[in-house]
């Protein structure tokens, strides 16, 4: 599903976020990326939907070399990847429901079908009763669940979470990770970056530990 080989990422200005990263994530697998802040976790994840491009090495997602992808092809790559961002990137000028509808608008779904899918996604994260609320009225954990609902509404084969449990209490954090695990159980490949080593160990899944831009 995802395969990195000798991937390096150097930002303009010379900062080397990734030095040489290689790993493979099989379809249906769930893996955690751990490491301290600044270890390169976010950078590693951003290479998958081509938000950043690798400076060296190759990033293969679903058989496509993402680093060589044409600009026009990127939106279609992203539609097949559910992204849960570190800062969630919710839109606060619209309802919870409309936030989940956003990705469906791009693909021109029939309104009824789109609404049905949005409700299904909200149901899976336990927010169906809050669809008319504004995201600002939601708790931190609920906002994170909303972000997940938006990420999965297009039924992606790959789900990525960048520190989805940051700033959450232990109970909310566990609930979030449980949701990721539930999606994995129905066949979605999942990759989660987190600095919470203790939480990760509870699940006993594959762990890629990043240290100074390399997998240790």
């Amino acid at each position: 599903m995802v395969s990195y080989s000798s991937v390096a990422k150097r930002y303009p200005g010379g900062q080397e976020a990734l030095k040489s990263v290689s790993f493979t994530l099989e379809p249906g697998e769930l893996a955690f990326i751990t490491g301290r802040s600044g270890a390169g976790k976010s950078t590693l994840l951003k290479l998958i939907p081509a938000i950043e491009r690798p400076s060296a090495g190759s990033v293969i997602v679903n058989g496509q070399n993402v680093g060589a992808l044409k600009r026009a092809a990127i939106p279609y790559l992203r539609r097949n990847i559910g992204m849960v961002f570190q800062d969630q990137k919710l839109l606060y000028d619209r309802s919870v429901f409309d936030n989940v509808m956003l990705p469906l608008a791009f693909s021109g779904h029939a309104p009824r079908e789109a609404a049905r899918r949005a409700r299904a996604a909200l149901d899976k994260v336990g927010l169906l009763g809050r669809e008319r609320s504004n995201p600002i009225q939601l708790s931190g954990g609920e906002q994170q669940r909303l972000a997940i609902a938006r990420a999965v509404v297009n039924r992606p084969a790959l789900l990525i979470g960048d520190e989805p449990t940051a700033n959450l209490d232990a109970e909310s954090a566990a609930r979030i990770l449980d949701i990721f695990v539930e999606f994995n159980q129905v066949g979605v490949t999942v990759l989660i970056a987190t600095h919470d080593q203790a939480l990760v160990e509870r699940y006993g899944r594959k762990v890629l530990h990043l240290e100074a831009g390399r997998i240790a």
Binding site: A72, P75, Y76, R79
Partner: peptide
């Protein structure tokens, strides 16, 4: 946000 989650330039 739309661009990040798969909106085309045309959209």
């Amino acid at each position: 946000v739309s661009k990040l989650i798969g909106a085309t330039d045309a959209f």
